[in-house]
Amino acid sequence: MRVVLRSKVLQSNEQAAVANRELFGKHGLAVINMMSSPGSGKTTILEQTARTLQGEVKIGVIEGDIQSTLDAERIASSGAEAVQINTEGACHLDASMVAAAVQELPMSELDLIVVENVGNLVCPAEFDLGEDARVIVLSVTEGNDKPLKYPVMFRQATAIVVNKVDLIEHTDFDRAALEQDIKDLNPRAQLFWVSARTGEGIGEWCEWLKRRVAIRRGSAAGV
């Protein structure tokens, strides 16, 4: 006997993501799913972002790591609200993990939630968390060929942040090649060149975040 199912493999995750998106919409929250390889500087960028936007944008951060609370502690000391998810071995966050973690955040007081996904450019791509933007961080020390090696991830990005530009002259990173690859793969993605260490480019990135927050707040208020 054949039974036709035509059911999505990630159906239960997608249902949880839809519920998250409704909840975030109700609170008028901008929600960013931030993904990268390990060590690209996501946490340092978020520390800089929280300091730059202090007093203007209230940020909550959900830290996804396989183990440890180190990143959440760093974020909390930069002034943002932080909650840690330990995936206990899993290589990605899913929507139900995020649904549980946001309950620990004072949602009605926040403007922006950043979900710092597990450092991995493959697995998180398939798991919608209910975010309204996907941001990929890439550091110049990783090389400029990452978009071509991880097209599924880069194709879905709303914005791409290239970090550690202060080190670019010490690497073989080909800036023009990266720009061309992004143009071919995902021409609508916003591209930011930053150094979380020196602060270069962080202002422009923060302006983009502020615009997203304003749009989400406007749509929640019915403007």
Binding site: R2, V3, V4, L5, V9, K183, D184, L185, R188
Partner: peptide, 29 residues
């Protein structure tokens, strides 16, 4: 992986196939 229209060269393209991930059917007794 070039997401650009071969005719008009627009980069505004949407993926209509290739994102599938579903169970089509099962067979058994």
């Amino acid at each position: 992986l070039i997401f650009r229209c071969p005719d008009c060269h627009s980069g505004g393209v949407t993926v209509i196939k290739g994102r599938e991930l579903y169970i089509d059917y099962i067979e058994g007794e």
